[in-house]
Amino acid sequence: MSDYIIQLNNISKVFEDGFVALDNLNLSIKKNEFLTLLGPSGCGKTTTLRIIGGFEMPTEGEIVFQGQKINDLPPHKRKVNTVFQKYALFTHLNVFDNVAFGLKISKTPKNEIKERVREMLNLVNLQGFEKRQVESLSGGQQQRVAIARALVNRPEVLLLDEPLGALDLKMRKDMQIELKKMQEKLGITFIYVTHDQEEALSMSDSIVILNEGIVQQIDTPINIYNEPKNAFVADFIGESNIIDGTMLQDKLVHFCNKDIPCIDTGFAKNEKVDVVIRPEDIDIKNLSDAQWTGKVTSVIFKGVHYDITVESSDGFVWLLQNTDRQYEGDTIGMSVDPDDIHIMKKVIDL
């Protein structure tokens, strides 16, 4: 049939209060894929996971699991497990019993439960914690109990809702690597929710960018970064200069009072467009060779590079990233290669 493990077809979710959380969402997830739902807070990521987990009914559309429609299947019968946003550990049980919960429900033999829980606790680096109460654990340890509790059941699909959100930066980085390793080793499909674009870019096979319940782009991390489909994606993934422009003809765009060569084709003559330029793609040039000139208004050291803000005499503000230091008050020249200019259709606001 299809090689997709989960398909969401035309899913919409309208809450009782009339709020539209998801609007005609289409998504196909391959087996063993690490797929990330990425978007700002409130864009519908958790709602999407809850629909897959069975905790929320879609208002419209169908959920297909291994070729079968599962809209009416209750959560406890779905072959997915969830790592909840705030862990949702059972505080009346110790670590061992938390992890063993699913196996006991499925009446797994005692010896096997012991073996699998032990294996799982090794995997998440919590050997020796069996008898501990979950409330006595640190955030990172509770997090790992939650992951072990879900993974021990060997689900086809693991849903993770901002699992690293409560951890500090160092721990988050470590856990990102751990999670990715686990996913590859166990061969389980991960559907991962985050609002952290760096996390999404570094872990995922594919990324779904959501905004206000609408899918903006589904693609690999590299394509999302290099070829954002619209200004929202470009802005959300890293910083960008987004400038109003007009397409004069194929491969020629007018913006910032200049006609600039680019590589995009297929727009209508004089169509209004968004021009997106990454800060690191703006080259600093001699004043005579430059496409634009402007005055440096701020320089901030960011470790590897400098964030440089430049204001041109006709009022445009540019963000540049460059490893060479510039000085406030200097006038510099700027140019952009044609293939670093991304032309995007305007998102029509209704």
Binding site: P74, H76, Q85, F90, L93, G102, I105
Partner: peptide
């Protein structure tokens, strides 16, 4: 969410109440 976690781990609604909510 602990109730939902119990459902998620395969317990039916009644079991989830007995094994998780009541404790």
């Amino acid at each position: 969410h602990v109730y939902e976690a119990a459902l998620d781990l395969g317990a039916n609604p009644f079991m989830s109440i007995i094994k998780v909510v009541i404790p």
